[in-house]
Amino acid sequence: MTAGSAAPEGRPPGTPPAAAPGELPRRTPPALDARGLGKRYGRRWALADCTLTIPAGHVVGLVGPNGAGKTTLLNLATGMLEPTTGTVEVLGGAPASGADQLAKVGYVAQDTPVYAGLTVAEHLRLGAELNPGWDDELARGRIERLGLDQKLKAAKLSGGQRAQLALTLAIAKRPELLILDEPIARLDPLARREFLQLLMEATAEQELTVLMSSHLIADLERTCDYLIVLVAGRVVLAGQVDDLLASHHLLTGPRRDPATLPADQQVITASHVGRQSSLLVRTDKPVHDPAWTVANVDIEDLVLAYLSRAASA
């Protein structure tokens, strides 16, 4: 038990602190606000007409097929790419528009690259020099707890240790938004769990918004409370996980034409075998029809349903 670790108790991470007396309540801008955002390479649109608002204070999972535009979206958000069409704002500002803006966003790129020729200590020194808000105590504390030898060159680290180093560097700059692009796809189960432990601990401690792309639903299920499914450059599903789970149902019952369902029930996927129909529907109203057996869905069901709907469209 470390001193002060009880601090975030009592209010969800990311919710703005209550305004002091006499002060006007501060409005938190969304973590990300994209309007008609698009990016074209030659003739190909890597991202097309993407309109999306991600509220601050969530751990957001970004899922989609390879080539759907996930990395493009994340690179636009960090300011490493310029949009071809539309606009994107991050924490109320244009990406990479100045020192202030850069300090607010942490980024861990695909496969968590670090500088192979630099030692762990040199990485920390570099982090301290480049980042005005650098929290050296936090960085050193984490490296110590990970049991990493500071004199070791990054090239000598295991994949899991490299990922932990990259995450520590991103966290120690104390960003408001942390963007991670498939950080753990290549890690073994233990290294993956340790990475997520560190990430969730930082989220609790620093009131951080996290935006993370991944193919690993089981990991997203543990960590995310907001989900975005991106297919072919477009957002096909976005929302708080609790709301998404509450508004989607798996219906099974006698074979039936989906067109005969009530207007409020949107069919996401339908399969008909023999005399039985199975439908995954989205509706904000309860399903009362006694002909149906209604079951809840989990995040994996949801993601697979939206991906397969998009694939067969």
Binding site: P8, V59, Q197, C224
Partner: peptide
């Protein structure tokens, strides 16, 4: 959250 790697 850190021990179980779950959302705070």
């Amino acid at each position: 959250a850190g021990g179980l790697a779950i959302n705070p």
